[in-house]
C-alpha cells in the first residue's frame, strides 16, 4: 500500500485515538493537544476527505444540535482497512527509528 501523507497519518491516528467521538472539532482539538499546532478547519478536512476516499475511514451522523446551526455532527470511524493501514504506519515508523542513534534530547 502507498504510504499516507503526514497530515493524513496524523488525522487517521487521531480518529483512532478518539474512538467514536471523532468529528471536525474534536479532531482539531486533539491534534492541538498532541502536536501543539492549531490546524485550520480546512487543513483538517482536506486529508480527511482523502483518507475517506481511500476507504480508511467512514462517517456516521449524530443528532442535529442547535450549536451547529441545526446541523448534525459528522463522526468519523476507522474502517478495517484503516486499521491495517495504521498498523503498517506504526511498524514503518518503528522500523525507521530503529537503529537511529540517541538524539540526547530525551530524559531517561
Amino acid at each position: 500500500m502507498k504510504l499516507l501523507s503526514r497530515a493524513e497519518e496524523i488525522v487517521l491516528v487521531t480518529i483512532w485515538k478518539l474512538q467514536g467521538n471523532a468529528y471536525g472539532i474534536t479532531i482539531r482539538e486533539k491534534i492541538y493537544e498532541d502536536t501543539g499546532q492549531k490546524w485550520s478547519i480546512g487543513a483538517i478536512y482536506a486529508p480527511l476527505h482523502r483518507i475517506q476516499k481511500k476507504g480508511l475511514v467512514k462517517t456516521f451522523e449524530g443528532n442535529p444540535i442547535p450549536e451547529r446551526g441545526g446541523r448534525s455532527k459528522v463522526y468519523y470511524e476507522v474502517t478495517d482497512k484503516g486499521k491495517k493501514a495504521l498498523a503498517e504506519i506504526k511498524s514503518v515508523n518503528e522500523s525507521i527509528w530503529n537503529e537511529a542513534p540517541n538524539l540526547g534530547t530525551e530524559r531517561s
Binding site: 472539532i25 482539531r28 480546512g42 451547529r68 459528522v74
Partner: peptide
C-alpha cells in the same frame, strides 16, 4: 447564537462542496 448572516452566506457559497455540511457545522460550533 447565530453567526453573522453575510459571513455565513459567504461560507456556504465558497466552502468546497464535499465537506460543506460538516465544516459549516464545525464553524458554527
Amino acid at each position: 447564537n447565530k453567526p453573522p448572516k453575510i459571513a455565513e452566506w459567504i461560507l456556504t457559497k465558497f466552502t468546497g462542496s464535499f465537506v460543506k455540511y460538516s465544516a459549516l457545522g464545525d464553524f458554527n460550533e
